[in-house]
Design a protein around this nucleic acid. Sequence first.
DNA 1: ATAGGTATTGTTATATTATAACGATTCTAT
DNA 2: ATAGAATCGTTATAATATAACAATACCTAT
Lengths: 136, 136
Amino acid sequence: MKNKHGSKRALTRNQSLVFEALRKAKNPVGAYELLDQLREHGLRAPLQIYRTLDQLIELKIVHRLESLNAWTLCCDAEHDSTPVFAICNDCGIVTECFDENISSNIQKISKRSGFVADRSVIEIHGRCDQCETSQG
Amino acid sequence: MKNKHGSKRALTRNQSLVFEALRKAKNPVGAYELLDQLREHGLRAPLQIYRTLDQLIELKIVHRLESLNAWTLCCDAEHDSTPVFAICNDCGIVTECFDENISSNIQKISKRSGFVADRSVIEIHGRCDQCETSQG
DNA sequence: ATAGGTATTGTTATATTATAACGATTCTAT
DNA sequence: ATAGAATCGTTATAATATAACAATACCTAT
Ligand SMILES: [Zn+2]
Ligand SMILES: [Zn+2]
Ligand SMILES: [Zn+2]
Ligand SMILES: [Zn+2]
């Protein structure tokens, strides 16, 4: 994904299309919903979407939400720490946040059992502030 | 799932079948794999499996691993706190563990943004102690 | 610039995972 | 026993994801 100079390569056409679709969406988007939206721009097959999403994940600008089967833009291209996603059951909004302690606790819990962590999935379901206050 | 005395009801036939299949498995099992195994005992349709799994989750004796699309027995029927699953990429073994701090951190991270947590998914992928030490 | 090899992309087909709809059966309370 | 509610079985179908291979673009050395 990087060119020979190590700098970031511009996004390919498919990558840009998927990126823009995700950027315009309020909430995470499923693969087939992306496909529907991008048909008019020439994407016809699921694999074109899935491959592109994998590439954008590799580039660290997109995350997959495992408990939703959906994808969302990363809030910030630079983080190394494990993101924590807060997912609202009502409005579907997803907030990416970080917590030093959670990351270090995962390290600890891993070391305790000799487990070497690689990738963490942390997805909290509940109700966002807005839904909580507006509807009781 | 509880009878009128509030005590735990015995498992139904389907529940027992799925429970036993999970108990015998070393690792989490997918719905269609369960279906294959239980065909000889009279289960024929995916819904019979999915419904039963939902019931066992409701009974808090089974967990679903969101990042695997698979299910596993709970290590301990009594916990209230959020389980943390360590999933080995190599051998597929899944260890359910707990960490007071992680639970309280999730509370904090939630409160910070007014989010009210409901259900947490924490799944750590990596290599288990055994795979790590045996194969370098 | 051109040929040859490599990596990426497009396309078709298919696999895997999950749910909708509805009738049959069982359970529950009177 | 009987009516209503809940659960279950069955068929069909929806939703999500990948395998296989051909076509195209890309890189490298001449
Ligand atoms: Zn991020
Ligand atoms: Zn909300
Ligand atoms: Zn458990
Ligand atoms: Zn292992």
